[in-house]
Amino acid sequence: MSVDAKTVRRIARLARLEVADDKLDHLAGELSGILRWIEQLNEVDVSGIAPMASVEDVQTPMRDDVVTDGEKRDAVLANAPRSEEGFFVMPKAVE
């Protein structure tokens, strides 16, 4: 399947990536090339096969529900692009 510029714009929005208008066609071409190559997977008989998310067939382990870490506000905020009075500062999210 090939993707067009409109699809690239939609995907870029979903991925929260700004893409300049004059880059859309070029990207559509590149992504279409990769997707066409990927489509050889359609040759594989996958009937009756369960999708494999992990190579480990063990169940995800449960841990005890206890606090093992914390009281590290300053360490958590140390890398914030902007912080004030112990909080992250971010742009207004709700009008």
Partner: peptide, 14 residues
């Protein structure tokens, strides 16, 4: 069509 199929092919490879 893509992701689930790829995971099934991964099972075949394994």
């Amino acid at each position: 069509a893509y992701y689930i199929r790829a995971q099934k092919v991964r099972a075949r490879i394994t």
